[in-house]
Write a protein that binds this DNA or RNA. Sequence first.
DNA 1: TGTATCTTCGTGGGCGAACACGGAACGACA
DNA 2: TGTCGTTCCGTGTTCGCCCACGAAGATACA
Lengths: 392, 392
Amino acid sequence: MFAHEDTNNFIITKYVLLLYQNISVCEHKYSISKCMDEKFPKIRIKDIASLAGVSEGTVDRVLHNRGDVSAKSQEAVKKVLEEMNYTPNLFARSLASKKQYRFVSIIPEYLPEEYWERVDKGFDKAAIDFFHHNVLIDKMYFNQFNVNTFVELTNKVIEAKPDAVFLAPIFRKESLNFCKELSRLEIPVSFIDSLIPEADFLTYYGQNSFQSGYVAAKLLLNGIKSKIQILVIRTRRKGSVSNQTISRYEGFIQYINDKNLNELVELINIEFDNSDEDLNLGLLRTALLGNKNIRGAITFNSKVYRLAMHLVALNKSEIHIIGYDLLKKNVSYLQEGIINCLIAQRPDKQAYFTVRDMCRELIFNQEIKKINYVPIDILLKENIEYYLQFIE
Amino acid sequence: MFAHEDTNNFIITKYVLLLYQNISVCEHKYSISKCMDEKFPKIRIKDIASLAGVSEGTVDRVLHNRGDVSAKSQEAVKKVLEEMNYTPNLFARSLASKKQYRFVSIIPEYLPEEYWERVDKGFDKAAIDFFHHNVLIDKMYFNQFNVNTFVELTNKVIEAKPDAVFLAPIFRKESLNFCKELSRLEIPVSFIDSLIPEADFLTYYGQNSFQSGYVAAKLLLNGIKSKIQILVIRTRRKGSVSNQTISRYEGFIQYINDKNLNELVELINIEFDNSDEDLNLGLLRTALLGNKNIRGAITFNSKVYRLAMHLVALNKSEIHIIGYDLLKKNVSYLQEGIINCLIAQRPDKQAYFTVRDMCRELIFNQEIKKINYVPIDILLKENIEYYLQFIE
DNA sequence: TGTATCTTCGTGGGCGAACACGGAACGACA
DNA sequence: TGTCGTTCCGTGTTCGCCCACGAAGATACA
């Protein structure tokens, strides 16, 4: 009845090596003493070679599809590989391999503690983890408010001919051109944060922003019974085209439609200026004077701390505030109870896995998934601490 | 002004190798073309040896504190190691090392799709990842409702003298005895799920259950204005002593006290039987008949699907249900909108990191953290999909 | 000075895999 | 039969590190 029951009715040891070699996971049961005595039956190229009656070199040629092997030998080796469920020792492989890989990451430059810093840290971690697999990551940054910096940068990258590129495609059209060029040079690209569906790319890691807007709406509007007003703060962004914040907004609106809240919820739209905080404060003050029933406020970019700051200044602590991403200032306001909820998206993981998957593709020859949506993490004052503390 | 600005005002390349070698991360800036041409300046034992004017063997003896080295040589080598910021190639090390490690995991046996299955999967993943570092994991299971199975099992483990033990200390007293014995044999133990503070252990991974109860209360009770009743389902557990569900309950109560909700919230306690679902249904029916103002319901173990099932049968869809852990049945009810919220705790990661940290301690000689609380993840119908989909 | 003992240290083989090199076997053709 | 070109395949070296072995030098004592 129990999954791991044996004749003694309770003691089971699963010999995990079997799992590794893909030989039946559950059927083989060993008493611990027996298990402890066994050696690691590692299967090497040498073993495959002798079993197939060929030399190591031949097995190697088969493994790497390098040709110069007769049909007969090919057959024999493949059969043994299959039977033995051979998996190469990736450490030994990287150690012996003389091939070196140059990857380039291209993301917006950032100020300390801004969103992209956390992405960048993910690249750093990956750089360390894959260094001994002969991978080097060159990190490059463009100015997301100046498309020329992007074009100039990508031209340099094309010249340098790296082995792979990781790209935050903020500038849609220019990114697409860049990708086409890379495609022609057979340099693989992976997208991070957002994606360009028409482009040829290896993987994408990012949040489903529509759904994260939907979740935000649920968190802000769940259970309302009477008419309320909600402040919606948006920021115009000149130059860039692709934008996660737009689909977050659309998801937000979709929730209101799905739940038939159009009658109950009135949205008060405010457009923040990117730098003039006095102006923003004034806009907020006016909105609050004219609308007496404001219960909630939301921003769709990562700068919700600005909203929180102003609402504190205006002494409006009863307004529920919700926003995105764990910038230090956002977290502080959350911990103080001024921001009620933050939605996070594991930016460091996005970068790390992007690199890892490129290695799996180019070096390890492993399966990868093309589209990868990261979780929509919900952080409250009460659970933020353990989220931040848990460094993987 | 920007963190990664250079003289061209926008193009920066950071040479990540420098980061790896711990030489200043931000100060060294290279143009991409220059960077692309550079070789990997890997520092090997051989390099250290020649710089220190000794042989590789001597460096090796210093690195492993294996003695037979004169004070003078020791000094010289250590100085060069420091200067060069030498980090050994762990792959090459594991490849060459003849030492093999036997780890044992000891957790409750489980039925398919129960909580412990996900923990077990974490051990499987670790077994695969660390196999080529010469690590083998023996997985053992006891019956959590029969303390004798635990004692008998741990006696066998003691006999087998593994290199490390991973333990779910469900039976407090017996686990402590086991740990003392292991301590005498100098076998390190790590706790998973819960911990015994008096015992000598290497790491602990688990959720802060008090806080996760606190979070559950917030999610269930946030914003209530009028008097309501809440169903609190508990399950008596015979035999075992240490129990996460108790502290979850305490956290739940603490929230009510902190927010002065004693007046508003009336708790209706029900004790479920572990197997008799007809009985449980009856208990619920009675409670619902006698209490007309029930708005929410909670369980503190992972079996919230039983509660959901009964409330569906009783046609009580307006009651908010909250529970723990992503059992398949729980997830189904969440997706159907019957359960409103689940709190999750990444059980697979708990196991995986427990193994990883043991490797860091015994094999890689790296720093580890003793107490590790995993995040308190909040899952709703709207964000569960991406959480489940995101397999690391 | 010779011999034994102890301390200190260098060398070489091996871990599993990549890959270059060149040899063996075979057929074609003069 | 000899020469050349192909096709196929085995061998040897290398990667960075571990570790066993034994050599060299120092010291002590006869």
